[in-house]
């Protein structure tokens, strides 16, 4: 029973981590709290829904939805934030602009599509499950775990193993100096928006698959978790987001399983407060130290 709960928690946590990785990347590199991030999650889920309804297999619908979400993210970032960046506006301005934009987007989508929960086409994934050592894992869960591992691996390789990742890390630390290295920072920022949006979109598809429930506001409840994960993990810290995401998933599942499913969010946010009380820069945070 406990082992099964841990497995389910790990699975949920993997999608939280995937979602939060894009969020922390966007925050850490572009230094903007972009609240439209949750919308890319919704967008990814809906795109995958429509593609599979049109008969596309999942292995095509998932990457296509992720890429399209990335493009939407790049476009929205450019539309909403270019003017603010040029004017050197502070973080509060970008926070309010993206808050307004994301509420408008959710409301517009609900007006267009209705608030109903939609289901993926039946039979999208074979209903089978593996059972071993008393644990049961469905094929959908295996797919979610594999997709998360693959995407996280790709992101870590991009950031740690390529020249492009080095340039992104340099831009995160000193954007002006990065430009003096010959880095076209505006183009690199667009790429970071794309990668973040694609991660959010992929997260949306996988959560949609996990709970088989897709609706316009699904990105909003995810954003709350995204905040918990990136703050606890240390803002801009990729490794921290990974660990904190997994922890949050496990804690939610254990709370729901052993205490009450109504309490899972209460427990998660109480832990957020507790972590920030004791470690203001998050569990793995170095950001505050770096600023000093």
């Amino acid at each position: 029973m406990l082992a099964q709960q841990l497995l389910n928690g790990l699975l949920l946590g993997a999608t939280y981590a995937l979602f939060a990785l894009g969020f922390t990347l966007m925050f850490g590199v572009l230094r903007v709290v972009n609240l439209t991030y949750g919308f890319y999650f919704t967008a990814g889920a809906f795109l995958a829904l429509w593609l599979t309804q049109a008969g596309a297999p999942l292995f095509l619908a998932l990457p296509a939805a992720a890429i399209a979400s990335g493009l939407i993210a790049t476009l929205l970032d450019w539309l909403l934030l270019t003017r603010l960046r040029r004017a050197g506006a502070d973080e509060l301005a970008s926070l309010m602009v993206t808050l307004g934009a994301v509420l408008a987007l959710y409301a517009g989508m609900t007006a267009w599509l209705g608030p109903d929960i939609r289901r993926l086409p039946p039979g999208l994934i074979a209903a089978g499950a593996l059972e071993a050592f008393g644990l049961r894992i469905t094929l959908a869960q295996i797919l979610i775990l594999a997709a998360c591992a693959l995407l996280v691996g790709l992101l870590l390789w991009l950031m740690r193993g390529t020249r492009l990742g080095l340039a992104i890390r340099a831009m995160a630390e000193r954007p002006d100096t990065a430009a003096l290295m010959g880095i076209a920072t505006a183009r690199l920022a667009a790429l970071v928006s794309f990668v973040s949006g694609a991660l959010a979109g992929a997260g949306g598809v996988l959560i949609g698959l996990n709970f088989n429930a897709i609706h316009p506001y699904m990105g909003e409840s995810m954003m709350l978790r995204g905040f918990v994960v990136i703050v606890v993990g240390g803002l801009g810290n990729i490794f921290g987001a990974l660990v904190a995401g997994l922890l949050l998933g496990i804690i939610e599942v254990l709370t729901a399983g052993y205490i009450s499913s109504g309490l899972k969010e209460a427990v998660a946010f109480a832990l957020l407060v507790l972590v920030l009380w004791t470690r203001p820069a998050g569990l793995f945070g170095t950001t505050l130290a770096r600023k000093a």
Binding site: R169, A170, E173, A178, A184, R290
Partner: peptide
């Protein structure tokens, strides 16, 4: 970045090294 591409390169005031990156990574940049 276009000016750097033309061969004029700045060593900025106060060094401005990328403090969290390694010496080798700074050189690579």
């Amino acid at each position: 970045h276009r000016i750097v591409a033309r061969g004029m390169v700045q060593v900025p005031e106060g060094r401005q090294v990328f403090a969290s990156l390694s010496v080798d990574e700074n050189l690579a940049l």
